[in-house]
């Protein structure tokens, strides 16, 4: 089992990192020939950073669109962020001060994460419009996250797992020094699903995470009259003249 999970995590991490970097490189290398920020848009670079920050941290546009979706979506994402930060304790020794500090919050975040996910799924199942646009993978993606959160919470609140053992296993992985993984069914489920998530991310709608930073309607400065903007493939038309 130890070797199996070790191989699984090495592979999943590899797919995740390489896949994501490739995708990001693809986005970065694809030109944007025309300036298309959704206006009113910031007229300075600093303004763009602020707009993007509001978008990524507070989901500003979603807030304008639909309060319920925003509330549940933001609750899920903010909780996920906290939970991920909390999990840093399994990969750092000694545990960083701020990671230790947020441990109790991260614990509750697991619960709010699950609530947010369930809310989003209920919306997907019962709001006619959203059901109409949902594919099977949209539902399964929520199920995946719900199972990850559920198995995690199960280990925290019901079937306690030897977290020291888990930590030793992952620190071992990081230092190419194989340690044994505690035998625990919820833990196996949890880790299996997380590695599945890592593999799926670079080929799925989860690409919205890097994608948002490359969205021309959000990341462009509104200055077309002040500065000439031209893509290489479009500039060729001019040299032919």
């Amino acid at each position: 089992m130890n070797t199996l999970f070790a191989i699984l995590f090495y592979l999943a991490t590899l797919v995740f990192v390489v896949g994501l970097l490739q995708r990001i490189r693809l986005y970065a290398n694809t030109p944007s020939p025309l300036l298309i920020p959704t206006t009113p848009a910031p007229v300075t670079q600093a303004g763009v950073v602020l707009r993007m920050t509001r978008e990524v941290v507070f989901f500003e546009s979603l807030f304008k669109a639909n309060l319920w979706t925003w509330a549940m979506g933001w609750m899920f994402h903010a909780s996920l962020a906290l939970v991920l930060m909390r999990h840093l304790r399994y990969f750092t020794d000694p545990v960083w001060g701020w990671v230790a500090l947020i441990q109790p919050f991260g614990m509750y975040a697991g619960i709010t994460m699950l609530l947010g996910l369930c809310g989003l799924w209920v919306r997907r199942l019962y709001v006619e419009r959203i059901r109409y646009i949902s594919t099977l993978s949209d539902h399964l993606m929520l199920v995946l996250f719900i199972c990850i959160a559920g198995s995690g919470l199960l280990m925290k609140f019901a079937v306690h797992t030897d977290v020291i053992g888990v930590k030793n296993f992952f620190l071992g992985l990081m230092h190419l020094n194989m340690q044994s993984l505690p035998a625990s069914f919820p833990l196996y489920v949890h880790l299996l699903l997380v590695s599945a998530l890592l593999v799926i991310l670079p080929i799925s709608k989860l690409l919205h995470a890097p994608g948002v930073f490359f969205s021309p309607t959000r990341n462009q400065t509104d200055n077309p009259r002040e500065k000439r903007h031209i893509a290489a493939w479009a500039a060729k038309f001019e040299s032919e003249k």
């Binding site: 694809t30 979603l62 639909n66 997907r124 949209d138 994608g211 969205s215």
Partner: peptide, 20 residues
């Protein structure tokens, strides 16, 4: 390959329904 907008927009939608 020519339009980053299209490239990113094809991938990024999560079917959240904000626009619906």
């Amino acid at each position: 390959g020519k339009y980053r907008s299209l490239r990113v927009f094809m991938d990024a939608c999560v079917h959240c329904g904000a626009c619906s």
